[in-house]
Simulated assay, not measured.
Amino acid sequence: MVQIPMTEHAPLPSRFLFISDMDDTLLGDDAALSKLAAALMQNRGQIVIAYNSSRPCASLRETLAQNKDIPKPDYLIGALGTEIERFATGEALDAYSRNLKEGWQRDKVAALMEQLGFAAHADEFQTEFKASYHVPSAAQFQRVLQHIREAGLNAKIIFSGNKNLDIIPPGADKGKAVIFLQGTLGFRPEQVIVAGDSANDREMFVHTFKGIVVGNADEGLKSLSSPNIYHAKSSCAAGVLEGLRHWGVAHPKPLNRTHKNHRRFI
């Protein structure tokens, strides 16, 4: 079980931790992204930003370097919640990742998937704690699930987009990474806002965080029902901005910045 470090001070009530998926959530509509970026930067002193993607942190950094319209985050969560880094320094939060090693047998996972005949995704999408494959149907996903169980491998399997299968340690996923970062930074659950579009974002929405499901989301996310989840009508970044306004964060005018110098990061 991941241990959440304690902090000395809770954040100010007016501050928020905003955690968003990248592809097809932030990205996908350049004009809307510019508007979202402006709203976030207007209130930047009171919003801690993290991007949470199935892609490794290295891949996210490449995208951020290429697209200057994306607001620079404070943290990156990559490879389906198996990596957490400080954006400014690139330092990994080792207290999180070291808990993923126990019982994780990546070599055996890779050998089994090769035996089953499934093609691995490109090397850039493979990491120490994430093995990614092309699996063409839900029926084939069930086949993999059965073989993983029969082999006694300690792993979590995430199937998304009806073709992408990721195998990660059981102690990791996008939601667990959010919980760790929330606890590490001292935010209360109601101060956390998450946004996503696909099945691999689902674990962010099963907690008591404020959620934004963008309009172009998978049916699996659209079917979620909770007072804590806002279903945006707009897609991609426009849906994120719509959701932030619903939750009272991205105001047309800046929030009270009295305490903007009291941001406490690890």
Results as ranks from 00 to 15, higher is better:
Leu185Val: 02
Lys174Trp: 15
Pro189Asn: 06
Lys174Gln: 13
Asp173Ile: 09
Pro170Phe: 04
Pro189His: 03
Gly183Pro: 00
Pro189Ala: 06
Arg188His: 08
Lys176Asp: 11
Ser198Cys: 03
Lys174Ser: 11
Gly186Gln: 12
Lys176His: 10
Ala172Trp: 13
Glu203Met: 05
Gln191Leu: 14
Pro189Phe: 01
Ala177Met: 05
Phe187Gln: 11
Leu181Met: 07
Asp173Ser: 11
Gln191Cys: 15
Phe180Ser: 01
Gly175Met: 06
Val178Glu: 00
Val194Tyr: 00
Arg188Phe: 02
Ile193Ala: 09
Asp201Leu: 08
Leu181Pro: 00
Gln191Arg: 12
Ala177Trp: 05
Gly175Trp: 02
Glu203Gln: 11
Phe180Gly: 02
Ala177Gln: 05
Ser198Thr: 10
Asp201His: 07
Lys176Phe: 11
Ala199Asn: 03
Arg202Asn: 12
Gly183Glu: 02
Arg202Met: 13
Leu185Thr: 00
Gln182Asn: 08
Lys174Val: 15
Arg188Thr: 09
Ala172Val: 13
Phe180Glu: 03
Val192Thr: 12
Arg202Glu: 13
Thr184Cys: 11
Val194Leu: 02
Gly196Tyr: 09
Asn200His: 07
Asp173Thr: 07
Arg202Gly: 08
Gly171Met: 13
Glu203Phe: 10
Ala177His: 06
Ala195Asn: 08
Lys176Tyr: 11
Ile193Leu: 02
Val192Asp: 06
Ala195Val: 13
Phe187Leu: 07
Asp201Gly: 10
Glu203Pro: 08
Pro170Cys: 01
Asp173Val: 11
Val178Ile: 04
Glu190Trp: 08
Phe187Trp: 05
Phe187Ser: 06
Gln191Lys: 13
Leu185Ile: 01
Asn200Lys: 06
Val194Asp: 00
Gly175Tyr: 05
Asp197Pro: 04
Arg188Cys: 04
Arg188Tyr: 03
Pro170Thr: 05
Leu185Phe: 01
Gln182Pro: 10
Phe187Cys: 05
Arg188Ser: 13
Ala172Glu: 13
Leu181His: 03
Lys176Cys: 09
Asp201Pro: 09
Ile179Leu: 14
Leu185Ser: 01
Gly196Val: 15
Asp201Phe: 03
Thr184Val: 06
Thr184Met: 11
Val178Phe: 00
Lys174Phe: 13
Gly186His: 03
Gly196Asn: 10
Arg202Asp: 10
Ile179Gln: 13
Ala195Trp: 02
Ser198Leu: 06
Arg188Glu: 14
Leu185Gln: 02
Ser198Val: 09
Leu181Ala: 04
Lys176Thr: 12
Lys174Leu: 14
Gln182Phe: 07
Arg188Ala: 12
Lys176Trp: 11
Ile179Gly: 07
Ser198Ile: 10
Ala172Ser: 15
Glu203Val: 08
Asp201Ser: 08
Glu190Gly: 15
Leu181Gln: 02
Gly171Ser: 10
Thr184Gln: 12
